[in-house]
């Protein structure tokens, strides 16, 4: 048993590393005419998949394994994104700063973003997780939109115009390291006594409480670390796109993560990783079809002309 569980973690790491090697090869080797198969656009998309995986897995900790229904995950992502972006844009004046100083600042910035998101998670979760039923859903949804409103009215954060000029510090490598570390940490937690308590809360809260588990504390803790990972993802996201806007983190974005989660399967970590992978790419693959979408119209125009 013990042996197998170590292997499970190792398998995750190996899978990620293999994926990295393949992607890297595809992005350098000139396989098709005029260059490699994966151009910068696809690399960016893959980096987004990595970020979405961490978002979805961390949402799954709350919704899938603890049986709660949080629908405002993007709000915590916004807290992390704006916090870290503020730190790096102020501290690193140019986007071409020396990597030896840039990366320590970057890491400190995204961790600070994560911590602030965790604090926001505590503020939202501590009062609402005591209540049963749909209240967590309603409160998280509202908190998500409230965070977005606060950003919109705060001039320092760029208000409704968004925040630009963020140094491009997120590379494919950063995303991979970030995703591996996050997923392994969360998976480890799940395979522990605390992880079992989470599932106990999901299966029967009354029974868990009767079996001496402080269910409120367990729920709040899971919610807080889930918000932490969302915050860090936000930081990584901000330094990938270099421009963030309050509308990037709306309630609709939170719904996207819910869909990723439930499509892949909310009660398995691998499911929570498959969902975002499919759904980040699917619209892009469909985009090839999009040019056909207007064909009937164009055809009509030609006929009438």
């Amino acid at each position: 048993m013990t042996f197998l569980r170590t292997h499970r973690t190792l398998a995750t790491v190996i899978a990620f590393v293999l994926a990295y090697v393949v992607i890297k090869l595809l992005s350098v080797l000139p396989l098709v005419d005029g260059g490699p198969l994966l151009n910068g656009y696809y690399i960016q998309l893959i980096a987004l998949v990595g970020i979405n995986i961490v978002m979805t897995v961390s949402l799954g900790m709350v919704n899938g394994f603890t049986g709660q229904f949080s629908i405002g995950h993007a709000g915590f992502m916004a807290v992390g994104a704006y916090t870290s972006a503020m730190i790096t844009t102020v501290w690193l004046h140019t986007s071409t700063a020396n990597p030896w100083t840039a990366y320590p600042v970057f890491i400190a910035a995204i961790l600070t973003g994560g911590l602030l998101a965790a604090a926001a998670g505590y503020l939202v979760g501590a009062p609402s997780l005591r209540l049963k039923g749909d209240y967590l859903a309603i409160v998280t949804l509202s908190a998500n939109e409230l965070i977005r409103t606060v950003i919109r009215v705060t001039e320092v954060l760029g208000g409704p115009r968004g925040l630009g000029g963020i140094p491009k510090l997120t590379t494919l490598e950063v995303v991979f390291v970030f995703a591996i570390v996050s997923v392994v940490l969360m998976r480890n937690y799940l395979f522990s006594s605390y992880g079992r308590s989470m599932k106990a809360v999901r299966d029967s809260e009354i029974a868990a409480e009767s079996m001496a588990i402080n269910t409120t504390r367990q729920k709040v803790f899971v919610f807080v670390f889930s918000a932490f990972f969302a915050g860090v993802s936000g930081g990584v996201f901000a330094h990938l796109l270099q421009f963030i806007h309050p509308d990037n983190f709306s309630f609709v974005k939170s719904l996207e993560y819910l869909i990723y989660l439930y499509v892949g399967g909310s009660t398995s970590i691998s499911g929570a990783m498959v969902g975002p992978a499919i759904f980040t790419f699917l619209p892009e693959l469909m985009r090839g079809l999009q040019k056909w979408r207007l064909v009937p119209q164009r055809h009509r125009k030609e006929v009438s002309a």
Binding site: S197, A200, A208, M211
Partner: peptide, 16 residues
């Protein structure tokens, strides 16, 4: 019971 958990996990949860 914690119906979706294994039998042994039910015991372990109470030990938590």
């Amino acid at each position: 019971l914690f119906g979706k958990s294994s039998v042994i996990d039910n015991i372990k949860i109470a030990y938590h």
